[in-house]
Simulated scan of single mutants.
Amino acid sequence: MTDTGKPVVGFVGVGLMGWGMAKNAVEKGYPLRVVAHRKREAVDDLVQRGAVECPSLAAMAAECDVIVLCVTGAPQVEASVAEIVTTARAGLTIIDSSTSEPDVTERLARELEARGITLIDAPLSRTPQHTWDGEATTYVGGPVETVEKWRPLLSTWANAVIPVNGPVGAAHALKLINNLVALGYAAIWAECYAMVQKVGADPAVFREIVTNSGMNCGNFQSFSKYAVERDAGAHRFTIVNGAKDLTYYNRLANRHGAATLMSDGALQTLKLGVAMGMGERYMPQIGDIVLALNDPEAER
């Protein structure tokens, strides 16, 4: 805790979502520590805004009251935690905003509790732009008193902080279910726009039809930006990350003995895109996967 009365915040993973989260935290008065990231531009920007760059995660952990993780997935979460615990003080809180696997989150929480460290899960919804603007949605698993303790920090990047009223790991489970909705719809839009092209219709007309129907939503509009205007950056979330998230969802479903009728189809679409070399493209571009199946000779 600093003289300002605000806890020292460490940030691991200042990528598409994490950059905006960290930017909001430091701009709203939280002492911020960051470590090197492949997105060097983000670290340099945060330092200019008042953050302090640390030489390693272990060095950062020694200075922090709370550390926020926003990394790719469960393996990166586990690797980060393994380094954090080498220097962390008892009383540290780790907030995992990654899209991770609930069973991993539950296990890490138990192991960290034995060290006097608290872990809560607070994954995000909405886009990097919403996060940058402080308008993300986050839902949080863990004891109510812990969620409320960190609500002011979470509120720097999220204007909707939703306690899930469940144990640690419950928010990560709901995140995976939420992502099935988003990614499942994206798979439907991909097939629809591919069929629009197959029958020789105008994709702009199809967008207008759906826009003026009960199926209009932000997901459809961001997806359509690419299908109609070729704007791939309308939703900056990669196909390979989508495949990872649905893989996690299917593991969760299998753990609970649940049917996976819809998620299986969406996952196979994304896995095919990865196999075709499209993994680093953004989700609105999955229409190209279906187009390639419809017309294998066409260039994408």
Rank of each mutant, 00 (worst) to 15 (best):
L174A: 12
A204D: 11
F223G: 04
R207S: 05
G242M: 03
K175W: 06
G218A: 06
L176R: 04
K225D: 10
R230I: 00
I239Q: 01
G184W: 01
A232T: 09
R251E: 09
H235Y: 15
A258H: 13
Q197G: 14
W189S: 03
V228M: 02
Y185V: 14
L180P: 03
D202M: 05
A182I: 15
V240F: 01
I209M: 06
T247Y: 07
H256A: 10
A182C: 15
A258V: 13
A170S: 15
H256F: 15
A173K: 08
E229S: 12
N254I: 11
N212T: 05
G214I: 13
N241S: 10
G200H: 01
S222E: 00
G169F: 04
N178H: 14
F223P: 00
V199H: 07
R255N: 13
Y185A: 14
G184H: 03
F223N: 02
M195W: 11
R251D: 09
L174Y: 12
E208R: 11
R230H: 08
I188M: 13
G214Q: 09
A259F: 12
A182E: 13
L180M: 12
Y249L: 15
S213N: 02
S213L: 02
G214T: 15
T238I: 12
L246I: 05
S222N: 13
A173C: 08
L174Q: 14
N254L: 12
T238Y: 06
V205R: 03
M195T: 13
A253I: 05
G257Y: 07
F223E: 02
L180S: 08
A253F: 06
V181K: 05
I188C: 12
A182H: 10
N254W: 09
A232Y: 08
D202F: 07
V228Q: 03
L183R: 02
K175P: 11
Y226V: 03
H172S: 15
V199Y: 09
V168K: 05
C192P: 04
C217N: 15
G257P: 01
V168T: 10
P203W: 01
E229I: 10
A234C: 01
L180Q: 07
Y193L: 08
G200P: 06
L246G: 04
Y226H: 00
A259E: 14
A243P: 06
I177T: 12
P203M: 00
I239M: 03
G233M: 04
N219I: 15
A182Y: 11
A243D: 07
S213H: 04
N254P: 09
V168R: 05
F220Y: 10
H172A: 11
A232N: 08
D202C: 07
R255P: 09
F206K: 02
L246H: 05
Y226M: 01
E208S: 13
C192D: 10
Y249W: 10
Y249M: 10
N178M: 01
A258R: 11
I239F: 00
K175E: 02
Q197A: 14
G200Y: 03
F220K: 08
G218C: 03
V228L: 02
G242T: 06
I239L: 01
A232W: 06
I188A: 14
N250Y: 06
D231P: 01
S224G: 13
S224P: 01
P203A: 04
R230S: 08
V228I: 04
G200W: 00
A171V: 07
C192Q: 13
A227Q: 00
P203N: 04
L176H: 02
A204E: 14
M215I: 08
N219T: 14
N179D: 06
S224V: 08
I239T: 02
A187V: 08
G233F: 04
L176P: 00
R207T: 07
